[in-house]
Simulated scan of single mutants.
Amino acid sequence: MTTLVHPGAGAPASAPDAPAGPSHSARARRSAPSLAWLGLLPFAAYVLLFLAVPTLLAIGSGFFTRDGEFTWANVAALGDPVVLNTFANSAWLSLLTAAVGAVVGALVCYALLGMNPDGAIRATVDAAAGVLAQFGGVMLAFAFIATIGIQGVITVFLQDALGFDIYENGTWLYELPGLILPYIYFQIPLMVITFMPALAALKPQWAEANLTLGGTRTSFWTRVGLPVLAPSFLASLLLLFANAFSSYATAAALASQGSQIVPLQIRTSLTSETVLGRENLAGALALGMIVIVGIVMALYSLIQRRAARWQS
C-alpha cells in the first residue's frame, strides 16, 4: 500500500537562504579594536622607566667622557687586569654559591617530594623558601654580623665556651670569602622555589612502568628521572648564577672596604674620592655585566624551553 506523505511532514521546511559566512554581529565584534592591551600599560611603563631607560643610560655613559666627548677608553678599561680580576671574582663566587645552592636545594626538594603536598610541613617549607629567597641586602648582612661577626652571638659563645676563635686567621666575614655563606643563604630557598615544580611534575606512571619492566629505584633515577630533570636543574643553576652575579646590597654592607666584585667596582667608580674623572667607567662595567647576564639568561631560556616539553 502506498503511503502518501505531505511535502512538509517528512522533513522540516527549508530555511530561507542564510549567508555562508559569519554573522554581521560576529564580524563587528572581531573588527572592533580590543582594549585588553591597556592592562599592560602600567607594567610597560614600569619596565621602561626602571629597566630600559637606566640600562640605556648606563651603557651609553660608558662611551663618553665626563665632559660628554665620545671615547673608547672606558670600554677598553674592561681589559685591565684589575677589572678582569674583579669579573673573575664575581664569576667564581657566583658559580660556587649557585652550585652549592642548586645541590642542597635539589636535595630539599627531593625530601619534600615524599611529603603530603597539602601538609603543614610542606606548606611551612614553601612559605619559608618564598620569604628567605627575598631576605637579602642590609638585613641579611646585619643578621650575619649579629650572629658570626667579630662580636656576634655565636662567635662570643665559641670563644667563651670552647675557646675557639673563628677569626684566628683574619676577619674573613668582611672580605670576599665572607660573601659565600650569605649568598648560599638565599640561593638555597630560590632553588627550592624554581626546582620543586619540575620535580613534582614527575609522573607516577613512569615509576610504575619502570617497575613493570623489571627496573629498580636506582634504574628509574639514572635512566628516567635524572635525564628528564637535567634541563630544569641546569636552568635553575643558571638562574642562581645570574642572581648571585648581580647581587649588590649584601656585599656592599659586608665588604665595605675594597672592590672585590663587579657591583662593588661600579660603586667605587661612582663614589671614589681618590680616583676622579672615571665615573663613566661604571657604565662600561655595567655593559660587561649586562653582556654576561644576558648570555646566561639566554641559555636559561633555551634550556627552560626544552624542559617545558615534558612538563606540559
Rank of each mutant, 00 (worst) to 15 (best):
234 L>C: 08
227 P>L: 01
243 N>A: 15
222 T>R: 11
235 A>E: 01
256 S>Y: 13
242 A>R: 01
238 L>D: 01
230 A>F: 08
246 S>F: 10
233 F>S: 06
253 A>F: 03
256 S>D: 12
235 A>F: 00
228 V>D: 10
242 A>Q: 04
226 L>V: 13
225 G>W: 08
239 L>Q: 08
242 A>V: 01
224 V>H: 14
247 S>D: 15
240 L>P: 02
241 F>P: 03
250 T>Y: 09
244 A>C: 14
232 S>K: 02
230 A>G: 03
252 A>T: 10
229 L>E: 06
240 L>A: 13
220 F>Y: 14
252 A>G: 06
227 P>I: 00
253 A>P: 10
228 V>H: 13
230 A>V: 02
255 A>W: 05
223 R>H: 13
254 L>Q: 06
252 A>V: 10
249 A>R: 09
242 A>H: 05
224 V>Y: 11
223 R>S: 12
232 S>D: 05
235 A>P: 00
252 A>K: 11
250 T>I: 07
221 W>L: 09
246 S>Y: 11
238 L>I: 00
242 A>I: 02
230 A>I: 01
220 F>W: 12
222 T>K: 11
254 L>G: 09
229 L>R: 04
225 G>R: 03
225 G>F: 02
249 A>L: 12
252 A>Y: 13
224 V>I: 15
226 L>R: 13
255 A>I: 15
238 L>C: 01
243 N>C: 12
245 F>A: 12
227 P>Y: 05
242 A>S: 11
249 A>D: 06
242 A>C: 05
248 Y>C: 07
223 R>P: 02
228 V>Q: 15
244 A>R: 10
225 G>M: 09
255 A>T: 15
233 F>V: 04
249 A>I: 05
245 F>E: 02
221 W>D: 09
230 A>E: 04
230 A>L: 14
238 L>A: 01
236 S>V: 05
241 F>H: 03
242 A>E: 02
253 A>K: 07
239 L>H: 03
233 F>E: 06
249 A>F: 12
252 A>H: 10
222 T>Y: 04
226 L>T: 13
250 T>F: 07
249 A>C: 06
256 S>W: 11
245 F>H: 07
222 T>A: 10
223 R>C: 08
225 G>L: 04
236 S>L: 05
223 R>I: 03
231 P>Q: 00
223 R>A: 12
237 L>V: 00
229 L>T: 05
242 A>P: 03
251 A>P: 07
244 A>E: 12
224 V>N: 12
230 A>R: 13
237 L>I: 01
226 L>Y: 13
224 V>R: 08
226 L>W: 13
226 L>G: 09
226 L>Q: 08
254 L>C: 06
240 L>R: 08
243 N>K: 14
242 A>T: 02
234 L>H: 00
255 A>R: 13
236 S>K: 09
237 L>W: 14
254 L>M: 05
221 W>R: 04
220 F>H: 08
227 P>A: 03
225 G>Y: 08
228 V>M: 15
254 L>S: 05
229 L>Q: 09
233 F>Y: 08
247 S>T: 14
255 A>C: 15
248 Y>L: 07
248 Y>F: 15
256 S>V: 15
223 R>T: 13
220 F>N: 03
248 Y>T: 07
221 W>A: 10
